[in-house]
Design a protein around this nucleic acid. Structure first.
Lengths: 229, 229
DNA sequence: CGTTGCTTTCATGGATTCATCATAAATTCC
DNA sequence: GGAATTTATGATGAATCCATGAAAGCAACG
């Protein structure tokens, strides 16, 4: 379920927006001030932000700018003052849409939906579409399930392949063993997390030049594993 | 230089659009019919398409749909009939923007610019999923748990990372050792508050240029610690 | 049924990190 | 300046976590 953050100081407006969006199947949080909003936007995992420009404390411009520094999620600007909107547009702060109050709720929901769809389309475009994945050393051809490391083919078992593929699809991202187990074995499968460790070990044996000193699949102590690119 | 394709049967309008866009530094092609437009859109490498809905031969809906099947580039729909726009919007064909004729040329250019910028932002390799925190000197990538200070990577243990992350999420805020212990170790964990001191020390050793004279993690005497930004 | 190869579980040794203590240094207050 | 309080940091044993070999389960296949 997609998560939306509304940064808006007027309770009534925020609540109405929230009701409509929740009715459309989104999970919605409200931040009543710019400070809290910025903090939540950066530290939590939202899929879209609806931002009122006129806020007490931190102003909307600053929030928009700061959010953009750490996130690429869609930001919808809402304001009653059209000059404000022109201003932020002119600054090129990277907001994704601009809505003037008063606005039609159906339209807001439609725009939210469209932005989420586009974001998904653009950010997931390469992963499922591409038949090949490659880093400097490792190359995977998904059609033939062939894996080569530095030019030489390595033969992986099914689970080893799944594991490597998943890591290759999310390079540099640290995953805990639980996460890996969820993603590769399926969340329903009950089993030992140690299995992941063993498979990592086998995988390293096959793809690492020196398995006891891995340079592709890195161990992040107390956390999990990461495929270094 | 970015390439734009205008699919529009009315010469005059197309030419005006082209002039404005070229004046803004884009390379512009015009297709006068839907067939040609669709063919060019699919076979050539454009960065953005401006599509009139009312076309002879192949209609705009079909073009939009077909383009989306092979390209993720922004598509701007232009039409004089607002019902048409509502219709295509409703179909969810994946167009990126809708402009009703007659429109202001400056606005068209602004929208084109915004869409191109967003497309670029979202399709840069690892950009879409970025999730990072930064001050002038310190940079944290939450996905990879990588920390760099003034450009050089530092390797933190789990607890050190948690501590730094928390401070980065609340810059300039002073936290007592008790608070830090609560937040990072969990309020249930019973232990010595002195542990926090030790970890601050270790952290400083790794991230401060001169650990005995810290400039990032400041000691507020008798109170606690603060991450200066 | 038995073989084969893959997957999972278990056990062990080794490596890393953590919490605690002790001592030194710094700061405040008188 | 000196005592009391607070903070810094080195050292160490304990706890935690990881790698890997070996054994046990499982499934496919003939």
């Amino acid at each position: 379920m997609k998560r939306i953050l509304i940064i808006e100081d007027e309770d009534i407006i925020a609540e109405v927006e929230k009701d409509y969006l929740e009715a459309s199947g989104y999970s919605v949080d409200i931040a009543q001030s710019g400070d809290i909003g910025l903090q939540k936007a950066i530290n939590e995992e939202y899929d879209l932000i609806i931002l009122d420009l006129l806020l007490p404390e931190t102003d909307g411009f600053e929030i928009c700018k700061q959010v953009r520094q750490s996130k690429n999620i869609p930001v919808l600007i809402v304001s009653s003052k059209i000059e404000e909107i022109d201003k932020i547009r002119g600054f090129g702060l990277g907001a994704d849409d601009y809505v003037t109050k008063p606005f039609n709720m159906g339209e807001l929901v439609a725009r939210v939906k469209a932005h989420l769809a586009r974001y998904e389309r653009l950010t997931q475009s390469d992963a499922p579409k591409k038949d090949e994945l490659r880093t400097k050393a490792i190359h995977i051809d998904k059609r033939s399930r062939q894996v080569t490391v530095n030019g030489t083919e390595v033969f992986l078992t099914s689970k080893e392949y799944d594991l490597l593929l998943f890591l290759m699809q999310n390079p540099n991202h640290v995953f805990s063993k639980d996460e890996l187990f969820m993603k590769i074995w399926g969340m329903d499968s009950l089993g030992d997390i140690a299995t992941v460790t063993v498979h990592i070990s086998r995988l390293r044996e096959k793809i690492e030049p020196d398995p006891s000193n891995p340079q592709y699949i890195e161990t992040v102590w107390g956390v999990g594993y990461r495929l270094k690119v």
